[in-house]
Simulated scan of single mutants.
Amino acid sequence: MSRELKRIRRRKATQKKLDGIWEQSNSSLIVHYSCESFYDTEDGRTPRVTSIAVRNLASGQTESFSIHKVAEQQRIPFDEIHNKYDDLEKEMLEEFFDFARTHQHFNWVHWNMRDINYGFAALEHRFRVLGGDPVVILEDRKFDLARALVSIYGLGYIEHPRLQKLIDKNRITDRGFLSGAEEAKAFEDKEYVKLHQSTLRKVDILANIFERTADGSIKTNASWLERYAAHPKILVEVIREHWVWSLIVMVAISVGLFSRVADWF
């Protein structure tokens, strides 16, 4: 199978999955979290988590989990959070995984949450390190919106950094939004509320992007040909793989040959 045909089939499968999530928006969630810098951690440990936000795609209702909220509940001054980080992070992750346990059957839409550096696996690992027992969300319940956009619109659909450029191109409100570098700086400066506000803003933005993608109103740099993976090779592959088209071609060739033979006589 050609690369072009594989891409158009992958695009159709991704669009079908996205449409299904949109139809099940009442049981679909947008999730995002903020954490310590991936590059500045010591001894190879995974980055500490600072806040998590989960937004219902249909209602917009958002649940949030953060170390500063836990600290406030425990009457710990913000300037002492770094001294009790492990305990506060564990309590926050416990609250999150309690929520995840009752929403395992939901769809979980995310942006690049794919590995141990940044992803569901990182959240699970951090909780285990701190002595917790995380809920593992099944892979077929996760939907990476970042990869889906590449699958649907092609690699060149927007410049890097893609999330920020999509926000700009579609004129989406980004008040409180922090880039990865800005989040790392906020963590160093112990600006936990600022990090939490950024996480809340990002689930709002991701919900907006998802909805625009679902209804076809999202603006990208992709051309029509890139959007629909149009390529002459696709026609050849379709003819080769589908017996109806192959039969039509064979009949056309036979008719042509018959006409040529008839001309000889």
Results as ranks from 00 to 15, higher is better:
residue 167 I to W: 08
residue 177 F to W: 06
residue 164 Q to L: 12
residue 181 A to N: 11
residue 168 D to I: 14
residue 174 D to P: 09
residue 161 P to L: 00
residue 168 D to A: 14
residue 141 R to L: 04
residue 135 V to F: 02
residue 176 G to V: 02
residue 172 I to Q: 05
residue 145 L to M: 06
residue 172 I to K: 06
residue 178 L to H: 01
residue 181 A to Y: 11
residue 162 R to T: 12
residue 172 I to P: 05
residue 137 I to K: 00
residue 165 K to S: 13
residue 146 A to T: 03
residue 149 L to I: 01
residue 166 L to A: 12
residue 160 H to R: 13
residue 157 Y to A: 03
residue 168 D to Q: 15
residue 180 G to Q: 09
residue 150 V to F: 04
residue 154 G to W: 09
residue 142 K to G: 04
residue 169 K to S: 13
residue 168 D to S: 13
residue 182 E to R: 02
residue 159 E to V: 13
residue 177 F to K: 00
residue 133 D to I: 08
residue 136 V to K: 15
residue 171 R to H: 14
residue 141 R to K: 15
residue 181 A to G: 13
residue 167 I to C: 06
residue 158 I to P: 01
residue 142 K to Q: 09
residue 147 R to G: 07
residue 166 L to K: 10
residue 170 N to S: 09
residue 179 S to A: 10
residue 176 G to N: 11
residue 178 L to P: 01
residue 133 D to K: 12
residue 160 H to N: 11
residue 167 I to E: 12
residue 162 R to Q: 15
residue 157 Y to H: 15
residue 138 L to A: 15
residue 153 Y to S: 00
residue 175 R to K: 14
residue 142 K to V: 02
residue 141 R to T: 07
residue 140 D to R: 15
residue 175 R to Q: 12
residue 175 R to Y: 14
residue 135 V to I: 02
residue 156 G to M: 01
residue 149 L to Q: 08
residue 174 D to M: 10
residue 181 A to I: 10
residue 175 R to D: 14
residue 165 K to T: 09
residue 178 L to F: 00
residue 148 A to E: 02
residue 153 Y to F: 05
residue 155 L to I: 08
residue 164 Q to W: 13
residue 165 K to G: 08
residue 139 E to D: 13
residue 159 E to G: 15
residue 160 H to T: 09
residue 157 Y to V: 04
residue 153 Y to H: 03
residue 170 N to I: 05
residue 157 Y to W: 09
residue 172 I to D: 06
residue 153 Y to C: 00
residue 175 R to G: 14
residue 152 I to N: 04
residue 145 L to E: 03
residue 170 N to M: 06
residue 143 F to V: 00
residue 171 R to K: 15
residue 147 R to Y: 11
residue 140 D to Q: 15
residue 152 I to D: 05
residue 182 E to P: 06
residue 163 L to R: 00
residue 145 L to I: 03
residue 135 V to D: 01
residue 132 G to V: 00
residue 167 I to H: 08
residue 151 S to H: 12
residue 133 D to A: 07
residue 143 F to R: 01
residue 174 D to S: 14
residue 171 R to G: 11
residue 142 K to Y: 01
residue 177 F to P: 04
